[in-house]
Structure formats: C-alpha cells, structure tokens
Design a protein around this nucleic acid. Structure first.
Lengths: 380, 380
DNA sequence: CTCACTTCCTTCGATTTCGAAGATAAAGCG
DNA sequence: CGCTTTATCTTCGAAATCGAAGGAAGTGAG
C-alpha cells in the first residue's frame, strides 16, 4: 500500500525542486541539486517521459540563452486536503506544487465522531474529483488537519478537547481503508505553520500563532516542522501572571487560553451584555471601536506577548507570524509587539519580525500539500 | 586558509561515522552510509593509505565472520579545545573522535580582555601540543567556548555581561591569525549541550540547562544545535512570578537569574550571614543540611521549573538535562521535576526525562570536539 | 566433526554519474 | 549587424559507483 510517485533516486529531488517552485529550469536544478548538468538533463528527460514534468515555453534570460521552463505536468496528479474545524471543514484539491485547483467549505460537526466526519470528508473529496478533475489524473495523497493533538508516531488523535469520540482514534488507518495512498494526519496549527513558512523565504525558524477560538501554535525549525513528541507548539496552557484566578478547562489555574483565546473574549463580552457568536464578531466590534472589545483584545495581546517573550528568548526565531480569525484585530498584534519588544533580550529581537500571517485562509491546506508532496516523494 | 582534512566525497561521511563511534567496520559503514559494500571498501582503503584510519584486530561476530575493526589512526590528528570561564579556562586536546588526550585547568581572568585571554589559551595549546603530542601529528582544529552570546554569522561576541572589552571582538579572526585551521567559537552552554547530546543516544530533542553562577541553556533540535539568530537558549532573563521585585542586571525586574542563579543564591546566603565564595559551596551547605541553603535551592528549582514548564510545553523535548555546579544539589532537580510534572500537559511529559547531565565536567570540551570535527570535514 | 548458514569483505563487469568541450540561443555593444 | 559575452543545454569519453558472485571466516545444529 501507500503507492508513491513513480520516481527513483535523484528524480525525487528534482521533482521536489520544481514542485516547490525553487527551480524552473535545468540549470536551476543543477545548481540546487548539486548534480552535473548532464545528469539533470537525463533525469528531466525521464520525468517528462513519465508525464510528471512538462516543458512550457522559455523563461527570462539572465544575460544569456533563455532557459527552457519546466513545470509540473497537470496530469502529474492532485492532492486532496482538508482542514477540520469544530463545525465545518475546509477542503479542496491541489496540484503537486500546492496550487489550489478547487477549495470549498462544508458544514461538518466534529462532535459526530471520527467515522462520520472522515467519511463525510472522503465523500467530499470524491465529489470534487469527479467534478473538477479529468478522470485519468491520479490522486497522489490525502491529508487532513485536526483541531487537536496528533501523535506523530501512531498518527492517532490524543486527548483532544471538544472532540468527543476521537481520543486514540486511528485516523490515518481509517483513511487508508479508502485510499491506498500516502496519508497525512496532522494538527491544524502545525499545518498552518508549514503553509505559512513557504510565505517567508529565507526565514528558517518561525513561530506561527493561530489566534481563533483557541490559541494554537506551530513551530518551524530549520525549515522543518518541529513536532517534538507530538505536543510541540502548545502555548495555550501556559500560566500567565494575573491578580485574579480563572480555572482553565485543563484543570490548571490561569492558563493563557483562559484569558486570551477567542472563546475567553467572547464569554467576557457576553458578561458585559454584548452578544457575539464567533471570534470574527470580536474583530467587527473592534473595528467599530467598541471600547470593551478593544480593551479586551489589547489585554489578550499583552498576555500573549508576555508568553511569547519567554519563547522568543529561548527559540530566537526569525519571524513570529500571527494568524487566525482574531489576528484581523489590529490592537492584538500591536500589543503583542509592545510586550515582546519591551521585555525580550535585544539580541533576540534584533532582527525579529512580528507580523500578520501572510498565507491567508488556506494556509493549512497549503501546508498539508507541502507535507503530502514530501510523503509522496519519500523513499519506498 | 582553513585547511581541512584531506578527504573528498564520501570519504568524509565514512570518517565521520567512525569518529563518532557509529560504525566500527566496513559493513557498519555500508549500512549507515547507504553505499555499496564495494565502494566502502575502496574508500576505506584510501583512508587507511592516507593515515586517517587504521585496522585494529577484529570485533565480535554477529553470527558470521567477525568484522575487521576500524579505528581512527592516532596520527590522524588532534583538536585543541577550550572552555572559557570568568576566572579560569579549562582546555585540552582531543583526538578526532573526541576522546580527551590531555585536559587541564588554568587560571585566566576574562576581564583582561580578549587579546590577552586568547593568547594565553593559544600559548597553553602550544604547551600541551609539544608536551603530549608526537610532533608529526597534525592539529586539525581549534575551538573555544565563551561565557556569553556569540553571533553565529560573524562569530563575534555580542553584548556580553561581565566580559569587559569583548563586545564585538572578532574572536575567530583573531585566532585565525595564529592557526590556519577550522576555528570554532561558540557559547559555552551551547557547547555543553552538544557534548551532553552525545550521551543521550536516541534522543533528538534536548534542553540542557547549566545551573552555575549564571543560568545557561543549550537546545538540541533534531540532533543539531539550535542557534536561532545567535541568542537561542536564553532562559535566564525570563520574568518569574513573584511578590517582591528584584531588578536584574539586564534592567528588567524579576528575571529568573535574579532569583535562581548561583550568584543570586550566594548573595542571599551572605545576607543571612553565611559566607560562600563559589556556587559549589552552596552544594556543600545543602549536603550538610543547612536549612537556609536547602530552602533557597528548593526555591530556585521551583522557579526554574516554572520557566521550564512553558518551554517543555512549547518545545516538547525528549530530555531536559540539568548540569552545572549547582546541579549537584539534589533538591534542585527534585523541585524542577515537581514543578514541571505538576503544570505541564500530560502529552508533553508523557515520555519526558528530567535528569542530571551525564557528560560531566568536560561536556563543553567534548561538544567543541564534535562541532570541530564537523567543521574539519565540511566541504571546501 | 561435518554441514548448513550467517556475516564480512573483495573481485569484476555493468551501470550510472560526472565533467570538459561543444552546440545552441539570446543579450549587450560598438 | 557582426562581434563578444553570458547562460543553457547536450554530447561523449573518463571516472566513480553499484551489484552480483564468490571467497573468507566465523556460528551453531546434528
């Protein structure tokens, strides 16, 4: 099982370089792969014969002969990716280079349990495939993001909150019964981090914070997703300094999540008599200059910033990217910045960029595409 | 300049595998390097001819013919490494596999400035070389640990505290005037982390805390030292929760260092009328069951544990190793463990080991050896 | 002890990869 | 417009690498 792309040896590296957009010509490939130009030409020839690569016109000259541009062939295949949320799923098809072919959002209650949910996703994939993709184009991989911790060893969901019936469920195995393909199961914040990372070329170490209903975080170290033992990236259950004391769902007092998550802000607003149903509503209130909302968001940013201070000193990333629905509220980022600049070591903030996420709503799907391409190219 | 080992192509990989102790025979090499057995034999032959490898008897059988054991030749060369402290320097010579040949400690005031200090180290290297090493054995690399931040890009010291005259000094360039060799300049806690990492086979993600006069920390991610932009691993200037307020030397209130460093503990003891001159004295007091000392150490451990909680959740390492002179005080580790176990996510602490450092006093020197071997083998 | 089996290492022809040289194609320039 | 320069890509002999086969040296079972 797990049919991988029909490539061998150096072909995989070359295909990866073209798919990730790092190389567009044989000359690029020779430079980046460290192979002789002649070897590259041979391998490329094979890849074209195999229908994976295609030549497409010529690129722009750099002072000499114009390169013959290489592209992934449309028939090379597609990837089916999904990002599962609490009440809906965002899913779509990408080509092997991660370019979205079709993306849509469907309602989907995660509380219905893993079987129903995963089957719903798979059905949606089938719909999209028959509707948008020529029948001879092969599916090369299937992946999904999960709003909870995933054990990378077993690829099962582990002790998720708000996901009844999912604990210890073998997600990858279940999908494998429907697809004889590389299958990816990963935490949603991690996927988002991978997707975001490709928007920051030159930055190898990133923290990507997802500020939505909850607070997620993905970590990219040396260009690769850092999983640790499966739980890496959690910042929501860190204790924050506070006068009062709020008990978090995890059983500990004063977790960041209890003060700064979208859920926490929403219940605080409700208490002051303002009704909101989604984190995005908070952003609207802030944009309408409702003082209670602005103050709450500013406070949340300061608290997140205090936590990030510790992590920036320790991890010393190039970039902290802030995404998620709450990130659209400007005071959030401003307060985070203020807290980090104030307290971090000058050496750690010297070249640090704290910025809004660049990848947009499909970051997680793009990230899934990146990881799936790796999986499809990985050794036998 | 920077004469590297006379190896090319795959030879480097093979030499590295033997030097790091991962391979002991041609068969091991073939397995680990992914080369054909025949190619390995050829390369090994060349390395033996070059005087870098040597055959040494035979190993133990695994059910068939006994392997012919491979070792680094003693004439392959030596590495000169130093670990600079505030008032002394620990330095020595290693063979290419990192085995100490001779190690000694000399008094050395870092406050005398970089030129005097580095020349003193180089003189000591010369002494050791003439005294202990046959004259035809080449020196293959020189490295030193610095008790302050080092910019990995420029290999200069950056804004160090307690190192007058060192700021922005080009340490590597200065050493390069005396040695036409690979030169390593690295923060001491980072070196210690690298040395410690080799004592935890199978663990790819480590945090190594050095609890001495100050509090240092080195991070190993995926088996490699994580430098970030040069400041990674700092945990000493993290704000801790506290009722009182102490101003740290860095200008911020309530840094961990101001509460839990050896220096802080010493001044607290002095205030209670107990005289101590070195962090090791605190350990003695604790072992003699002096209640003030024990209580202070326990408190320091709890505070360090609280900070580590955040980092363990985020980084999710396999191991947190605690070294440095203070680590010999048992209550320190116990309190750290208690704080981390209590507050961290179960998923993060599931397989986490919080343990005393294994590498001993020469951890940093061994780490320097590991990194220097890499540098000496790296491409031209 | 003999015989089958395992592992280690080398030999040697087949294959792959390389790299220098040349062919192709374009830009810059007087 | 021809000339030089630059860059891309291919050709082809040289060199490195591989892999199958086999010898060497051991273990263990009958």
């Amino acid at each position: 099982m797990n049919q991988r792309l029909p490539v061998q040896g150096a072909q995989g590296d070359l295909l990866r370089l073209v798919a990730t957009g790092k190389a567009e010509s044989r000359a690029d490939l020779a430079r980046l792969a460290g192979l002789a130009a002649s070897s590259v030409s041979l391998r490329v020839e094979e890849l074209i014969d195999a229908g994976l690569l295609a030549e497409e016109g010529s690129g722009t000259s750099r002072g000499g002969r114009r390169p013959r541009r290489l592209r992934l062939s449309p028939e090379a295949g597609v990837l089916a990716v999904a990002d599962l949320g609490a009440h809906h799923v965002r899913l779509g098809l990408l080509d092997l280079s991660g370019t979205p072919l079709v993306i849509e959002e469907r309602p989907c209650e995660i509380a219905e349990g893993p079987r129903a949910t995963l089957d719903r996703i798979a059905d949606a994939f089938d719909d999209l495939l028959t509707e948008h993709i020529p029948p001879n184009t092969p599916l090369r991989g299937v992946g999904t993001g999960i709003p909870g911790p995933v054990d990378p060893a077993t690829r099962r969901v582990v002790t998720p909150s708000r996901m009844p019936g999912w604990n210890d469920f073998p997600v990858a195995e279940h999908l494998a019964t429907r697809y004889d393909l590389p299958i990816l199961v990963e935490n949603d914040a991690n996927l988002m981090a991978v997707g975001e990372a490709s928007c920051w070329p030159g930055s190898d170490n990133l923290m990507v914070v997802k500020a939505g209903t909850g607070i997620g975080c993905g970590v990219i170290v040396g260009g690769h997703l850092h999983r640790g033992r499966g739980a890496a990236g959690d910042i929501s259950h860190v204790r924050v300094r506070s006068d009062s004391s709020i008990l978090c769902a995890c059983g500990h007092p004063d977790c960041l999540e209890a003060y700064a998550s979208g859920a926490a802000l929403m219940s605080a607003l409700t208490e002051s008599g303002i009704t909101v149903t989604r984190p995005a509503d908070i952003v609207t209130l802030v944009n309408d200059a409702v003082p209670e909302a602005t103050s709450l968001v500013r406070n949340a940013g300061r608290r997140m910033g205090e936590v990030l201070t510790v992590l920036v000193n320790f991890f010393n990333p190039d970039v902290v990217a802030v995404g998620g629905s709450l990130s659209a509220a400007e005071p959030l980022l401003t307060s985070i910045r203020a807290a980090v600049w104030e307290r971090c070591l000058p050496l750690a903030t010297r070249d640090l960029e704290i910025a809004p996420a660049r990848a947009g709503r499909d970051a997680a799907l793009q990230g899934a595409g990146t990881l799936l391409l790796e999986a499809a190219l990985a050794g036998p």
